[in-house]
Nucleic acid binder design. Sequence first.
DNA 1: GAGATAAAAAGTGTCGACAGGTGACGGACT
DNA 2: AGTCCGTCACCTGTCGACACTTTTTATCTC
Lengths: 205, 205
Amino acid sequence: MILAGKIKPGERINESQLAAALQVSRAPIREACRQLEKHNIVEVRTNRGTFVRNIDAKEVAELYDVRAALDSLAGERAAERMTPAAVQELTKHLKLMEAFTAQEDVAAYYRANLDFHMAVVRVSANNSLINLYESVCKQALLFRRTSLSLPNRLCVSLDQHKQIFSALNSGRGDWAAALLKNHVLEAGRALVSAIEPKTMELEAG
Amino acid sequence: MILAGKIKPGERINESQLAAALQVSRAPIREACRQLEKHNIVEVRTNRGTFVRNIDAKEVAELYDVRAALDSLAGERAAERMTPAAVQELTKHLKLMEAFTAQEDVAAYYRANLDFHMAVVRVSANNSLINLYESVCKQALLFRRTSLSLPNRLCVSLDQHKQIFSALNSGRGDWAAALLKNHVLEAGRALVSAIEPKTMELEAG
DNA sequence: GAGATAAAAAGTGTCGACAGGTGACGGACT
DNA sequence: AGTCCGTCACCTGTCGACACTTTTTATCTC
């Protein structure tokens, strides 16, 4: 989507203007906006237009709280449905994360991290959960303003994922659920505390 | 929504036809369809139209699994944020449920039941959770084909709600979470087995 | 000069019409 | 008779224009 870096958060989208810029009518623009609204990326207010959602630290915390609950459920169910293919898939992601930790490539690690969690969710074989999880993650990804440079957390995070995999692999659903919940909540807290001081500075200045 | 009993599940929505029937243009119909798509009530396929989602027992089970996780989270957070106003609100719903149980008014009890859970979710003060929970509940409400006549379950359900309220009121978040999760999962299982008599027969036989 | 009101400008919601695509029916070929 | 292809009707996607709402601006009054 163009939102990646084209339109600032909080800004409103001018349908006519965008339509003229893209050489199309307003109808496709509207369709696209509704599609984005479906994923909670923009907010449509009646007779006032569509605004790019501006996510603050409070909402990040909320989303991670929800994500933790969903991850927990995914782990619980995934443990009941582990297959050789699933083991191989998760192992692949773990190897990648291990490599990126050694290289201290935070961005790549973060992507592999997301892939790992997504894989766990898929193993749960709950389509409703899969869709909801994707939606929540997309929303949480809206504030990529700060590249989260927490290199010392990488080792801790990697170890947590290994424990989660171990729990899943041994069929300990409740254990995996607890580990996942704790892991995501920790990550959320780290992210919020990394973001908050900057917003505080902005508010102060 | 008109879907309540007007259009059969799985059926496609003819925009022109509906527009003519409602004396409006196709644009509002499209808008409404996208709104419904946002809530996962209909499915839009490109160049093929919008179809009312046909939810089967499997998906009901999935949704209730997710709902249980969300309810659990809501209970955990609500216990941390209970206020006198919240106590009063929840008590009100409990009283209503008690009255409807005495009258054996299943439909009214069911509505009050939903209100109670929704109130708990609101007390959690997590807007993302509130929106997601509403969405999941709306989806789960898509198959009201069978009026769930389980009068003997009413007393059990009412008792469970009282226990949940007690846990919330005493600030025992993890207890409330466990009770809620169990309660919703039970309700989901009851609903699924009530909807799919064939699977019950299979399991019994 | 500040606040309020009213008019103008801007923008979204809606409308009727046209273009492109999809599914179905019918005919021809194997 | 079965299968494949071309044609056709129906429907969605898109377009430009109009109506209503919101916002801005300019004027008037205190």
